[in-house]
């Protein structure tokens, strides 16, 4: 008779992901935290109509980018926007091996594990992935996340809170070489390098702890 209150039945891979994040013990010691620098290439900027084309990611831990801990997948498309092909270069019938959206998500969650998401304009990438999760009948990502844009803004204590820095602008400021711009993996790597440089500056003025980095999202707090 309690079946009415029963939790929605999620597939095993989703439950595994949720319990991994919820039970993670690593967040208190900065050196132990695995960050996953990620970037998505999409067909456009509309959460409802556009789709994720590819996800690229690489792990950062203890101040190092761990190249062997990487992720790169391409997703089969129903929606196609030929305007953005010019930017990301992924054609509908390109040569990359493509996965179904569901398979891509299964692999992504397994890779993500209990890591903290690191991205530039994180809310966009996480938002696009959440829409895909929703289409597959799953919940939203519960991983903690940080954003290079906000970490930078916290440090420069910009009087102009509205200013949003693009990845190119920050790469210019922090002198990061931009290869493979506009491929998911290339942008993920640039974001990871930016993060290392930002942390180098950040730790001079602030203790390195995850909560403060996450809270850099809220400049007024």
């Amino acid at each position: 008779m309690f079946s009415f209150f029963k939790k929605k039945k999620y597939p095993e891979f989703w439950n595994t992901y949720v319990s991994k994040v919820e039970n993670c013990q690593k967040y208190s010691t900065f050196e132990n935290i695995r960050f996953v620098a990620l970037d998505t290439e999409t067909t456009g900027f509309d959460f409802n109509n556009d789709r994720v084309l590819s996800i690229g990611a690489v792990a950062v831990q203890a101040n190092k980018i761990i190249v062997s801990d990487y992720f790169e997948i391409y997703i089969e498309q129903e929606v196609f926007n030929k305007e953005t092909v010019k930017i990301h270069g992924i054609r509908r019938n390109g040569t990359e091996t493509k996965l179904s959206e569901k398979e891509a998500l299964i692999q992504f969650l397994e890779y993500l594990d209990d890591a903290v998401i690191l991205a530039h304009h994180t809310s966009f990438d996480v938002g696009m992935i959440n829409m895909a999760l929703e289409r597959q009948g799953l919940g939203s990502l519960i991983s903690k996340s940080v954003d290079t844009n906000y970490i930078h803004k916290k440090m420069v204590s910009d009087s102009n809170f509205g200013k949003i820095y693009s990845l190119d602008e920050l790469s210019e400021i922090y002198n990061v070489k931009t290869h493979d711009r506009h491929t998911a993996s290339g942008d993920a790597l640039i974001t990871a390098q930016l993060f290392l440089k930002l942390l180098g500056k950040y730790r001079k003025n602030y203790a390195l702890n995850l909560n403060d980095l996450i809270n850099s999202h809220y400049p007024f707090s």
């Binding site: 690229g56 790169e72 997948i73 990359e96």
Partner: peptide, 8 residues
Amino acid sequence: MKNTIAER
């Protein structure tokens, strides 16, 4: 899996 980063 394709590995663009390792390629670079």
